[in-house]
Design a protein around this nucleic acid. Structure first.
Lengths: 148, 148
DNA sequence: GGATTCGTAATAATTGAAGTTACATGAAAC
DNA sequence: GTTTCATGTAACTTCAATTATTACGAATCC
């Protein structure tokens, strides 16, 4: 399967929107993310349902962030995207009759559950505002280097 | 992407082999794992290169475990399988020019790296002998329940 | 020598994300 | 009100990765 990069994509889009005054069209977002406007609409549509962004049609339409950046966590975004499977490796059969396989599954599930819990906890403590601040830092560094 | 279940498969196979006296053919392993003999050979071939199992051709041929069960960890098996990608989600672009995307990637990569480290550490502390012991426990429970 | 079993290459099936096309719907500009 | 711009969606195709299958060669034992 292809890797799911929607979380990465929406973060990229949201940060661009945060830096941009006014709304941005699907096409503009698609261009700066190297993808397709329809894909943008699909994923941004999920965020709209969650009240994180709003969309407007017609002239001067497009997408805007409606939520406070400091209240939106990566974990929330992960949930909004439908909590896609995090791991690319897993059990062959989730509900096996075979006792051997049950032992194997139990051991693996345990480890995966802990790793997932850690990841989601990390996600829960990173907000869009944090990312925006990190970007501002990088941007300042970049300008300092350029003007040196 | 389809989920990689080779680690699960290999563990299943190894535990069956551990319970079974003598060698087991690819076909027998394939049957108890609900898969194809060729798939078994492919994956077991990697374990053979690592010295964990041995194979013999012809009459009475098949696969046998050569390593001490208490020395083989899940982490080692993961490595033997080529350290497949653990996560099904990830960054859209690993080396972006865009500073925004660099911020996003940095945050995600950080969290993923920690989760991966935890997972591999857990894997490093589980041996085949542990799994065999867990199976023995389940098997005893099952027999007790059956004879009640 | 014949049956059995691994070894392996080549190819197809499967799965789910991502991309594309096409067209309908709604809002602003003129 | 008509044109233009933009979202909303359905349907379909492409793409990437694992897994399954077919086919045949090579080795081993009876």
């Amino acid at each position: 399967m292809k890797r799911d990069s929607r979380l990465s994509s929406v973060l990229h889009a949201l940060l661009h929107m945060a830096e941009h005054d006014g709304s941005m069209t699907s096409e503009a977002l698609a261009e700066c993310m190297n993808t397709n406007p329809v894909v943008v609409r699909r994923t941004m549509g999920l965020l709209r349902e969650a009240g994180i962004v709003a969309s407007a049609r017609g002239h001067a339409g497009g997408w805007t962030i409606t939520a406070d950046l400091s209240t939106v966590t990566l974990r929330q975004l992960h949930e909004v995207l439908g909590e896609p499977a995090i791991f690319a490796v897993g059990n062959r059969n989730e509900t096996p009759d075979c006792l051997v396989e049950q032992s194997v599954n139990a051991a693996l599930d345990d480890a995966f559950a802990d790793a997932e819990a850690l990841l989601l906890d990390r996600f829960a403590h990173v907000t869009l505002a944090d990312l925006a601040a990190d970007f501002a830092r990088r941007h300042a560094d970049w300008r300092a280097k350029r003007n040196k």
